[in-house]
Write a protein that binds this DNA or RNA. Structure first.
Length: 808
RNA sequence: GCCGGGGUGGCGAAAUGGUAAACGCAGUUGACUUAAAAUCAACCGCCUAAUAGGCUUGCGGGUUCGAGUCCCGCCCCCGGUACCA
């Protein structure tokens, strides 16, 4: 027997499989159901890390198992999400172009990915920086534009001073840039926006139908942040102006003892002449606006500040009571209407503020303890005609009367903001718009922006010598010379191209469509293929995409459905989040900590099969966990033992091994189906222990080998073909069936309990009757001391499990 | 604060309300070897008066014949989010 050498063997089979093209997926196979298994495509950072192995080789176990079912035509594609800032930064550092840097990384990582022995369909690989791909990213932009889902807005935007670009709200993590961690500042910029808020309700409501992890659904729901309530207008006394507030508790309106507007509220300017303490107010406004949003938040909870607007009163539309108006930074200009009716009796923040500034605090909901603020529900009090109504009744009554008098209406607001997709950077998809001065003069509202004709796509990204961002926020493409000049698609005059590029999340929001038809230059994907494959059956990825990528992809899908281009509204039927592999010290892997595990080194030492199996064995896939340098030894041993066993097969069937095999077929199939890969490995180990002890015949071992094939594709192929002499790949074999009769256990241990405590266990044949079990229990010597002089009050019998004698 | 997830041997972990710690790692002892590695075998939660018994799944209660698992109240760790009206 030769020693098993993974490095040689694995390479040999990887080349053989590639040559035979056994994983290239046909569009449709008669009598087979299509299954689309997708994993989030990687960013070509330069090197594969162990997390990539976790993300791609573990789903491959499931994919290989699905393929072996024989009923499915399985698509498992791979590609690269290759636009983005790191390429620019690296290019600056190494003096290369972003394109060259990206290309060489893609090539290198492709080689590394091949060492996994995964069943990727390499004929469908995509690269978002390829003009053949981003042609359709631009086309997608134009479809949204046609639908009115794209607009330009000059608004305060999140600006990263280090990346020198705008960020979407989703890309700001606790006030910092999600890429470089620099503190984000607010800057007024003109930007292209996608109207994701148009779909806010669908994005929440349709979560219900998805087979997704609950945390992911909750995260999306919270991110969209739907609040049902009412907008209510308060008249400003002695003026024709009104201040509109948003509240989720309109039933507390009689408890509104003052009103607060945000310091950035635009009505303040219009009411300026009425304000008596102008200087003081202006000072407060200036102070607030000078703070970054982060400062304002970090001071939260410390102490509330605010200034009363002297000379201003507003009138409560229902009680007609006149109440004072304040400005305070605890009310935000960017949420709701930027103004609130303060109900200190029933809101913690209002209560704190009212206490500090000695404002009236009034109870309008009967509190069980009488303590304020009272946040719960109940019957109304001190509320004129609404007294004694329940909160629910009061809400509808109050909204009815407000609507009748045109003083308010039921409203739902969202935390979700529209998606800003403009980036002032070079390495991204050019936005397919032009700005035409002539058209701008004719129609100033449209600012002269015209979409590029679809037949003129793609707008290729020009090669730039100097692609660095400039400090003033001018995009690098503004220096692109001739590239800028273009004929206006509308009037034919001279126009200039848009110089912003798109957020890379746009690239990745539709890539699952392109895998179906990556070479098509007539359409983003051929209609039949879409019908055959979509939606994606299982989408596997990291929890960090819970509120960004997943939300954006859902939005794009809904937008394309509205345009009649897709017939479904949710892209991913089932979602699985995988965990993160930590360093051996249980910390996130990082160069500075020196705890990074290089998968290439582990593959050289133990082989790809061992890495795959060990990652599967570590624990639940959703959990991740620390990498153990010695733990993988156990898997290497297992592989060697399987190899040895393959050379020492017994000439005849052993009944114990046969039974174990059938039990293992059942267990492994069930566990892979539930994506519980860790217990799959232990089941296979248990079976191996039995086979070694009892001996196993070739026919049984071959079935066992098929169970192992999804986890250790190279080892099993080598044994299947080289050792056992089969001519075809084991990976084209069908998954073995088990015989329930053989798998059935023929002896169980009956547990004997007295008063719920285990006192003995006796091997018996399955199906033992209660009467028989009672007799066995009575006869047990170990039980007798506990039964002596006691009366049996009750007998609990769980068939084939236990008998419990309750004595007193 | 709020929303999610988690807390089981030295470590990774397993366990439809039914023998807690399966399967591994690490460790100890032994066999083989001139020796080491590899391999194989045995042991491997804690306590004790030790052929046996008791205790043990973050803490405190509860439901149940029986709780790691269900319920109530806490503590700690991780992730997300935040004066969101």
């Amino acid at each position: 027997m030769k020693k098993y050498d993974p490095s040689k063997t694995e390479k040999k089979w990887q080349e053989a499989w590639k040559k035979a093209g056994i994983y290239n997926t046909p569009d449709q196979i008669e009598a087979k159901k299509n299954q689309y298994i997708l994993t989030e495509f990687p960013y070509p950072s330069g090197n594969l890390h162990i997390g990539h192995w976790y993300a791609f080789s573990i789903p491959d176990i499931y994919v290989r198992w699905l393929r072996m079912q024989g009923r499915y035509n399985v698509l498992y594609p791979i590609g690269f999400d290759a636009f983005g800032l790191p390429a620019e930064n690296a290019a600056i550092k190494y003096g290369k172009s972003p394109k060259a840097w990206t290309r060489s990384n893609v090539e290198y990582m492709t080689k590394q990915l091949e060492t996994m022995g995964a069943t990727f369909d390499w004929s469908r690989v995509i690269d978002t920086t390829d003009p053949k791909y981003y042609h359709w990213t631009q086309w997608l932009f134009l479809q949204l534009f046609k639908q009115g889902l794209v607009y330009r807005a000059k608004a305060l935007a999140n600006w990263c001073p280090s990346c020198k670009t705008i960020l979407a709200n989703e890309q700001v993590i606790q006030g910092h840039c999600d890429r470089c961690n620099t503190e984000v500042v607010q800057k007024e910029v003109e930007q292209w926006m996608f109207k994701i808020t148009d779909f806010a309700d669908d994005l929440i409501d349709e979560l219900e139908y998805l087979d997704w992890p609950k945390p992911t659904k909750t995260a999306q729901e919270n991110w969209i942040g739907r609040s049902r309530g009412a907008k209510i207008k308060f008249k400003v006394k002695d003026t024709d102006k009104e201040i509109e507030v948003f509240t989720t508790r309109p039933e507390t309106i009689f408890g509104a003892t003052y009103l607060v507007v945000a310091p950035e509220h635009r009505l303040l300017k219009q009411l300026e002449s009425k304000i008596e303490n102008k200087a003081e107010v202006q000072e407060y406004i200036d102070k607030t606006l000078a703070k970054t949003e982060r400062d304002r938040i970090s001071e939260a909870g410390v102490e509330k500040t605010g200034v009363r607007l002297e000379g201003l009163k507003v009138v409560n539309p229902l009680s007609n009571k006149e109440i004072p108006v304040w400005i305070a930074d605890y009310v935000l200009g960017s949420y709701g209407t930027g103004a609130i009716m303060a109900v200190p009796g029933h809101d913690e923040r209002d209560f704190e503020f009212a206490t500090k500034f000695k404002l009236e605090i009034k109870s309008v909901i009967k509190s069980p303890t009488g303590e304020l603020p009272y946040l719960g529900g109940g019957e109304l009090e001190n509320s004129g005609p609404y007294n004694d109504l329940s909160a629910g009744e009061a809400i509808s009554e109050i909204i009815k009367i407000l609507e009748k008098n045109n003083q308010g209406r039921a409203t739902t607001i969202y935390r979700l903001r529209d998606w800003s997709i403009s980036r002032q950077r070079y390495w991204g998809v050019p936005i397919p718009m032009v700005r035409c001065e002539a058209c701008a003069r004719l129609d100033p509202s449209g600012q002269g922006y015209q979409p590029i004709d679809e037949e003129n796509l793609p707008v290729e990204l020009p090669d730039l010598e100097d692609f660095k961002p400039s400090d003033d926020g001018q995009p690098p493409l503004a220096r692109a010379g001739d590239w800028l000049k273009v004929k206006c698609p509308k009037c034919g005059g001279t126009a200039e191209r848009e110089t912003d590029t798109m957020d890379t999340f746009v690239d990745s929001s539709w890539y699952f469509l392109r895998y179906l038809d990556p070479q098509n230059d007539q359409r983003f994907a051929e209609e039949n293929r879409i019908k055959n494959w979509l939606p994606v059956d299982l989408y596997i990825g990291g929890a960090e995409h819970n509120t960004m990528h997943l939300l954006y992809s859902r939005f794009i899908t809904k937008a394309l459905q509205t345009a009649g281009l897709l017939s479904f509204s949710e892209p991913f039927t089932r979602r699985l989040n995988h965990g993160i592999i930590l360093g051996p010290d249980n910390q996130k892997m990082s160069k500075s900590r020196g705890n990074v595990i290089d998968p290439d080194e582990v593959v050289i030492e133990h082989g790809a099969d061992a890495v795959r199996m060990f990652l599967a064995f570590m624990g639940p896939y959703a959990q991740g966990g620390p990498w153990s340098k010695t733990g993988i030894n156990g898997i290497s041993r297992f592989i060697k033992r399987v190899w040895t066993l393959a050379h020492t097969l017994s000439s005849q069937t052993n009944p114990v091994s046969l039974q174990t095999l059938h039990q293992t077929i059942r267990a492994v199939g069930e566990d892979i189906g539930e994506l519980a890969f860790n217990t799959v490995v232990s089941e296979l180990m248990k079976a191996l222990n039995v086979f070694e002890e009892q001996g196993v015949a070739q026919s049984e071992f071959e079935k066992y080998l098929k169970l192992l094939a999804p986890l250790a594709p190279h080892l099993t192929e080598e044994i299947w073909q080289t050792v056992l002499g089969h001519k075809n790949s084991i990976h084209l074999e069908n998954w073995p069936d088990y015989d329930p009769d053989i798998a059935k256990v023929n002896s169980i241990r009956l547990i004997l309990q007295v008063n719920g405590r285990v006192r003995d266990s006796i091997p018996v044949a399955p199906g033992v009757s209660q009467i028989e079990a009672e007799r066995i229990a009575q006869e047990s010597e170990k039980l007798s001391p506990y039964l002596k002089d006691k009366k049996i009050i009750r007998v609990i019998f769980v068939p084939d499990k236990l008998i419990n004698l309750v004595v007193g």
